[in-house]
Computed example of a mutant assay.
Amino acid sequence: MTISSMIQNVPCTLVTGFLGAGKTTLINQLLSTKTIGARWALLINEFGRIGIDGALLTQDNSDQQDIAISEVSGGCICCTSQLPLQIALSRLLSEHRPQRLIIEPTGLAHPRELLRQLSEPHWQTALNMQAVIAVLSAVQWQNPKYRDHEGFQAHICAADVIVINRYKQLSATCQQEMQAWITELNPQAQLIWAQLPEASETALLKSITDKLTRQLNTSSQILSQQTGSLSHSRIRLQPPMQLLTPKTSAISTDIVQDETLPYRYHDSQQGIFQQNMTVGGWRLPAEWVFDADALQQWLLALPEWQRIKGVVNTSDGWLQLNFTPDSLSTATTSAQVDSRLEIILLSKKGSDTSVEKTTNDKNQPQESQENRAIWDDELMALIL
């Protein structure tokens, strides 16, 4: 039997949503529905260079040996070239041969481009695309900066199902206005109201989980409309020859996997909302123990932060950190091979509070480097 004959009609679910909407929490909920022995695979795209979402996922699922995770780090798989997507998908499918695949693109991605790629003929036989699920943070929606932005709206327009998260903080009137806004953008989308996680309300959690499970086996109408104009020719997926080698123990495409610890990086570029964006992260030895309270206070005091994620060895044990401006989540987890932190900071161009000061362009590189050195020193001071 050839590799290509094994890779056919794998049910695939795309979980999208703007940065910090709650995609990782929802995927954990989906993983909880996996039956023992079923082989699932996750393809996670992270904007930064350090893979963290893989550690935030599957921690509460006892059948982890049948969940393969591949992390494509260091940019968006749908923005530049299809090569990272081709390699990651081919490797997952050929090595793990999953019975179900879930793809989580970065919250800064444009889902329409990814849907276009997955509609190409060479994926039509390999993947059986199910309903596209978008997670919408109701708290983010309240801010006009988000709801009026095309990148935020794109996730709503490209979804079969919209999971509305953190809606209980909105008044009944605001909830009605949000529903009307969704309907105007995407009248065909099915809505699921879900305060994630809803562990304290068992009956409601079961209802939400049942609805999500049904979407794992419901064909995507969005994709069927998109592929309607494509050629009906279908070819089987044949992985690149270099991927047909014997299976290795690691299938992650994390580009910093082989860096010597401790490792730090920072990137600066133009981001969303016409703002400069700083993406930075650290991978640190597992034996370094951080003061849990001081670490969280330091992270939350960083200027103009948009997202903070981490898995860190602390005085309170190994902790998962998952922070957005409207949601601060911490949880204990099992020991990891190293500690990882990643932050995304946004700043208005020319603002006095800008991390990457732009009021004097010729001084910007020097000031940026000074900020990074300060962060390093402050972080190292938190080690016990």
Rank of each mutant, 00 (worst) to 15 (best):
I3N: 12
C12M: 02
T13Q: 02
F18I: 06
G22V: 01
T24S: 07
T25C: 00
T25P: 00
L30M: 04
L31S: 10
T33R: 05
L43A: 01
I44E: 15
D53A: 09
N61M: 09
N61W: 14
S70I: 12
G74M: 00
C76P: 04
P84L: 11
L85R: 03
I87P: 05
S90D: 07
L92V: 12
H96E: 02
P98R: 03
Q99N: 11
L101S: 00
L101G: 04
T106Q: 00
T106C: 00
L108G: 10
L114D: 06
S119Y: 14
P121G: 04
T125K: 04
A126C: 06
A131Q: 08
A134G: 02
L136G: 06
A138I: 12
Q142I: 06
Y146F: 15
R147G: 09
E150I: 12
F152Y: 05
A154N: 09
A154D: 14
A159R: 04
A159Q: 05
V161A: 08
K168F: 07
T183I: 07
L191N: 08
Q195H: 12
L205S: 06
T213I: 14
T213R: 11
L216R: 08
S220W: 09
Q225F: 01
S229Q: 00
I235Q: 10
D258W: 05
R264W: 14
Q270H: 14
Q270D: 13
Q274W: 05
N276G: 05
N276H: 00
P285E: 07
P303I: 11
W305G: 09
V311F: 15
V311Y: 15
N313R: 14
W318D: 06
L319K: 14
N322W: 14
F323M: 00
D326V: 08
T333R: 06
V355R: 04
E356G: 12
T359K: 13
Q366H: 08
E367V: 06
A373N: 15
A381P: 08
I383A: 04
I383L: 00
